[in-house]
Simulated scan of single mutants.
Amino acid sequence: MAQSEILLEAGTNELEIIEFFVDEGPQRGCSSFGVNVAKVLEVIESPGLVSLPGAPHPCFMGTIPLRDIVLPVLDLAVWLGLPRLRRDHEIILVTRFNSRTTGFLASGVTNIHRFHWRDVEPPHQAINNLASNCVTGLVRQDGRFILLLDLEKIIFELDAALPDDAPPPSEVRRTALVVEDSGVMRHMIRERLDAANFEVALAGNGQQALELLLRAEANRPDIVISDIEMPLLDGYTLTRRIRETPVLADLPVILFSSLITDELRHKGQSVGADAQISKPQFGDLARIAMGLIEKRRRPPA
């Protein structure tokens, strides 16, 4: 399942997910989850891993060799607080995002589906209140719900040593609209932009951001910083809409996402993004944002 085989074009507001499940036993049945195909390098069979006593987190199951890397494996059921019935031929989703490769253990894989982002519903309040709180949306498929997981949140919370190399605060106050569906990431981005002397407005998805921009008129932000994967309207499509709207067309846009890789960078370029930064490079984010704003304000020679 190489990333080069993904045929989705940027700006069509579509996503492709791989559906997998956790078998919670005969009384509870199976729960279905999904993750963007672009984050999955391959699916392998688990070698029968069991929980490690004394692990830094109960979901950490140790490491396995995978060709030229040592792959850390996390038990998704433990993280989500779900029982998991042990079964033969369990699978590991080998993912690549945020410049790191991680394995996630699940009971099995169901299929690959293509959806439109407008069909992705924000998580219901009951799901939002779960302790793990890493569900970013849900879609209906054949009479069941597939819960879309925020795997980045799991990695961030397991790795407290996030880069924190933000530039010193500027004397000039700037404004930014941050478009991000993850509450954890909104907080992290806002905190670091605040430290660089940005006034930050927030939107939970591209549709909400577009409505804010069109209503703002004279008070539009200096820059838009957007995630890519979001319900209703994704970051690629938001960027394309900004470029196609005359009153917004010259607004700088940064795509800040775990999907920013050398293989997928052409997608952001095709919709007119001014910069693309892979999470969690927060220091680069503030510096590049300030540079793009100054470039826009600088009169032509």
Rank of each mutant, 00 (worst) to 15 (best):
D250V: 10
F156S: 12
A209D: 03
T175F: 05
L251M: 15
L238G: 09
I146S: 04
A161N: 15
Q141S: 13
I155S: 12
A209N: 11
D222Q: 02
L162W: 14
L212N: 09
A209E: 05
T237E: 10
Q208W: 06
I189P: 01
R220I: 04
L147V: 10
S182F: 09
L151N: 03
V179H: 01
P167V: 12
D250Q: 14
A176V: 03
L147R: 08
V184L: 15
Q141A: 14
V224N: 01
D222Y: 02
G235E: 03
Q207I: 02
I242S: 04
R174G: 06
D159R: 14
I155F: 09
R174T: 06
E244M: 11
D274M: 05
G268N: 04
F145Y: 13
V253L: 00
D165C: 07
I154G: 07
R186W: 08
G204D: 14
V271R: 00
D150I: 01
L251R: 01
E263Q: 15
E229W: 01
A195W: 01
D159N: 15
R140Q: 08
S226T: 15
R215G: 11
L149Y: 05
M185Q: 07
S258H: 06
E180A: 00
P168M: 13
R265F: 09
R190W: 06
L255P: 02
F256A: 03
D150E: 11
L214G: 07
G268M: 07
D250P: 00
A273E: 06
L210G: 02
A218D: 12
F256E: 03
I189K: 07
E180R: 01
D150R: 10
E152P: 01
L177T: 02
L158N: 14
V179M: 02
V200E: 04
T175C: 00
V224K: 01
D234C: 10
T175W: 00
R173S: 12
A216D: 13
L147E: 05
D164I: 09
L193M: 14
A216I: 09
V271C: 03
A166P: 00
L232Y: 03
E244K: 13
H266A: 15
I146N: 03
A275C: 11
E191N: 13
G206W: 02
P163Y: 13
R241Y: 04
L259W: 02
D250S: 15
G143F: 03
A201V: 10
S258V: 04
T136D: 05
L214R: 15
A209F: 03
E244I: 11
D142F: 12
S182Q: 07
V139Y: 00
L151Q: 03
T245Y: 05
Q208I: 10
S170Q: 08
E229Q: 14
K267C: 13
R174S: 06
F145L: 14
P221G: 06
M230Y: 00
L158G: 14
E217H: 12
F156R: 12
A201R: 12
A196M: 03
L264W: 12
R144P: 02
I154S: 06
A249Q: 12
L248N: 04
T175A: 12
E229D: 13
A273G: 03
A275R: 07
G206D: 09
L214V: 10
E171V: 06
E171P: 12
L212W: 04
L193N: 02
S170D: 15
D234M: 09
L210D: 00
T175L: 06
L148K: 05
I155W: 11
A196Y: 00
R186V: 07
L212A: 15
I146G: 00
L149S: 04
A275I: 08
D181T: 08
T237A: 10
